[in-house]
């Protein structure tokens, strides 16, 4: 059961690594974020559809959530 936590901390280490001093990490200035603001960088432009998708998966598979909090329950069989 602790596998999850261990893997989590491992991943967050790699993730934070670029922020550590001494590494060749260039901060990205506000004006350099034009590409990040491109509409294609929004993963799900249509939240109603992705919510329905997640609802279907959660009623057909044993795992639900992890993307954000607050999805409601269902008695789907």
């Amino acid at each position: 059961m602790n596998k999850g936590i261990a893997l989590g901390s491992l991943l967050s280490c790699t993730l934070l690594l670029p922020c550590l001093p001494g590494c060749a990490y260039e901060p990205v200035k506000a004006y350099q974020r034009g590409k990040l603001a491109n509409p294609v960088m929004v993963r799900d432009a249509n939240p109603a559809h992705s919510a329905f998708e997640q609802h279907v998966y959660s009623s057909k598979e044993s795992t639900a959530g992890g993307y954000s909090t607050g999805a409601g329950g269902c008695g789907c069989n």
Binding site: G4, I5, G8, L11, S12, L15, L16, P18, C19, E26, V28, Q32, R33, K35, L36, M41, A64, G65, G66, Y67, S68, T69
Partner: peptide, 23 residues
């Protein structure tokens, strides 16, 4: 459900995110 996450702009074209949730 409890969730924590971090998202990070890596460079001008890449963003990464990590979420850990407990249900």
């Amino acid at each position: 459900e409890l969730m924590v996450g971090i998202s990070q702009v890596l460079n001008q074209t890449t963003v990464v995110q990590l979420n850990v949730a407990n249900v």
